[in-house]
Simulated scan of single mutants.
Amino acid sequence: MMEKHNGRLKIALIQSTLHWEDPYANREMFGTKIDQIDEVVDLIILPEMFTTGFTMSPDNLEKKEGDTALDWMKKMAANNNSAIVGSMVFYDNGNNYNRLFFVKPNGEYETYDKRHTFTLAGEHEKYTAGTERLVIEYKGFAICPLVCYDLRFPVWSRNSENFDVLLYVANWPAPRINAWDALLKARAIENMVYCVGVNRLGEDKVGHQYPGHSSVYDPLGELISISEQEETIIVELVKDEIDLVRNKLRFLNDRDEFNLLN
């Protein structure tokens, strides 16, 4: 059966502090925040490594933790009749990944492994990088979900498949938050998409401060919403607005054609 949709996608960005390397506490916390959403939403977005914070010690976690967190995401998606997306530490076939899951209410899910591991923090030494980009069709929108450091690389974010939404989950620290703001806006403009970024708040156990700035930009780069406090931000994306902009300003028709070789 073809999925019905109305050309609108209501999203909930959950901006929060995180409990360091404590998956149970984070699941409890996010479960409460999700239960407190008082309107119907289509997609709930959690930060990068939402079960642990940006840890470079994946071996501190039980190997089965990723499966436990995925089961939790499936349960929350079903209970709320909403898709849920976020990344986590995930152990698979002898390797650790910073793996994003996009879980639909019916339990189906798709995954994306972070392509650009953050070498400044040594993430490339602890986690295996992904090689394939993901574009998800959901409620009439084509969504490309990426993870944190991916934001700095416009070729990887390039709209070569006519998707509608670029979505970044992150643990983006305060000293470089100006880059976060600027690059989210740039990715929206150059790709003619809604660009959504969900960052965390607070201080982690290694002393990094995170200021939030979870935000949504429209296909012309106009800021729709931004926050610096602990809250759930709800925004409705409208497919007709994307089509209107692209039909009037046919910039994507003039993009350079090329493919990544590796």
Rank of each mutant, 00 (worst) to 15 (best):
I34S: 03
D92S: 09
V165M: 09
T128F: 12
W172F: 07
M73Y: 15
N162K: 15
R158T: 08
I84D: 09
T51K: 11
K104L: 09
D150M: 12
T32K: 15
F141L: 04
V103A: 04
S160P: 00
F118Q: 07
M49H: 12
T68D: 08
S157R: 09
E65V: 05
K139L: 14
E110S: 05
L166T: 07
T68Y: 07
I143V: 11
K114H: 06
H116R: 15
Q36Y: 04
Y109A: 00
N98T: 09
L166M: 10
H116T: 09
T111I: 07
I136P: 03
L70W: 01
R27I: 00
E28P: 00
Y127F: 15
A170E: 11
W156Y: 10
E137I: 01
N159S: 06
L146T: 08
I37P: 02
L100H: 10
K126E: 15
L166N: 13
N93H: 06
G66T: 11
L61W: 05
N95R: 13
P154F: 13
M76W: 02
P47W: 11
M73A: 11
G94I: 09
N81F: 06
D164W: 15
T131H: 04
E110P: 01
N79I: 01
L134E: 02
K104A: 06
Y91W: 12
K139Y: 10
K114Y: 10
I44Q: 03
G53I: 08
M73R: 01
E39T: 14
D38Q: 10
K33L: 06
M88R: 04
M29E: 09
M88D: 00
T111K: 12
T117A: 03
C148G: 05
S157F: 07
C144Y: 09
N162M: 14
I37Y: 03
R115A: 11
V41W: 04
G31D: 12
K75W: 01
C144K: 15
T111M: 10
F141M: 03
D92G: 01
D164K: 15
N96E: 13
A170I: 02
V165I: 14
E39H: 12
L151S: 05
E48K: 14
I143Y: 08
L46T: 00
P105T: 05
N80F: 04
V169W: 05
D71W: 01
N81S: 12
A83Y: 00
A170S: 10
K33Q: 06
K74D: 08
M29F: 12
K126L: 08
G53P: 03
Y97L: 10
I34Q: 07
F54L: 08
Y112T: 04
I136L: 12
G122P: 02
L166K: 10
R99F: 07
N98V: 13
I136S: 03
K75I: 02
K63D: 06
E161Y: 13
D71Q: 12
D92L: 14
D164Y: 15
F50K: 08
E132P: 00
G86Q: 02
E137H: 14
L134H: 05
N60Y: 06
F101S: 04
